[in-house]
Structure formats: C-alpha cells, structure tokens
C-alpha cells in the first residue's frame, strides 16, 4: 500500500502515513476552507489501511491549532481507530503539544476522556 504524504500549507497540516511501519503523523495547523475535501483522502487511506493485516499502529498528532470542523474529523478518525482496536490491533495515539500551548493540551485531555479502546497519551514537550 502506498504512503500518504500531504505537504503542509498555511491552513492545513503536514500528513505522513507510512503503511510499512504503521507510523502516522499529522502536524501543524488545521483550518482548511473545505474540511471534507482536505480530509477525505486521509479517511479513505485509513479505511483502506485497516483492510490490510495491521497489527500495530502509532498515530502522532502535533497540532498547534485546529478549528471545530477539524475536531469533528479527529473524532471520526478516533471512531475508526476504536473499531480497528476492537479487532485486536494494537493502536497508540500520541497527542503532542508545546508546554506553552494550554489550549492544545486541554483539547488533548478532552479527546483522551473520549477514548477507552486504545491508548491515547498527551505528551507535553
């Protein structure tokens, strides 16, 4: 399966999903004009990836700022991860934020409360 690489722009994050290693990264700011248009390839890639024999997966979020529509997409992604985790896949999500970005830290903690089927850690650096 091919990797997914989307370059960062002013309003959209850098996306790097590596099928071989199971290491996925979303980094930067997310407030695209058309959230569906931007994240459809991401969700479709994840859907296809989960059809393969995935045993382990680490998804890192290093998001500085994101709008409400993006937070809905993130919850949709977490839903997909929960469904996959229920089949025995070992999934870890790392929510990485700067120690000075209080909003990102608190958002990470809110997401963490939603999740109970896979490991969701908030890492402050």
């Amino acid at each position: 399966m091919e990797n997914l690489i989307i370059e960062q722009t002013k309003s959209t994050p850098y996306i790097f999903f590596c099928a071989a290693t199971g290491k996925l990264r979303i980094e930067g700011e997310s407030y695209p004009e058309n959230v569906i248009k931007f994240y459809t390839p991401v969700l479709e890639w994840l859907h296809d990836y989960f059809m393969t024999n995935v045993k382990d997966m680490v998804l890192e979020f290093k998001i500085i700022y994101f709008n409400s529509s993006t937070s809905k997409v993130f919850l949709t992604i977490f839903d997909l991860l929960e469904q996959k985790a229920s089949t025995g896949c070992n999934i870890t999500v790392k929510w990485i934020c700067d120690k000075d970005n209080d909003v990102a830290i608190e958002c990470g903690e809110e997401f963490q409360e939603e999740i109970n089927k896979f490991l969701f850690t908030v890492e402050i650096c």
């Binding site: 700022y65 709008n67 409400s68 937070s71 809905k72 919850l75 909003v103 608190e106 958002c107 809110e110 997401f111 409360e113 939603e114």
Partner: peptide, 13 residues
C-alpha cells in the same frame, strides 16, 4: 458524547 466534547473544545479555542 462527541457533541459535548466538540462544544468543550470550541469553548477552549
């Protein structure tokens, strides 16, 4: 439950 999370996150930002 997701809606409640979304509203809390919107409030933070």
């Amino acid at each position: 439950k997701q809606v409640k999370t979304l509203v809390k996150i919107a409030d933070l930002t």
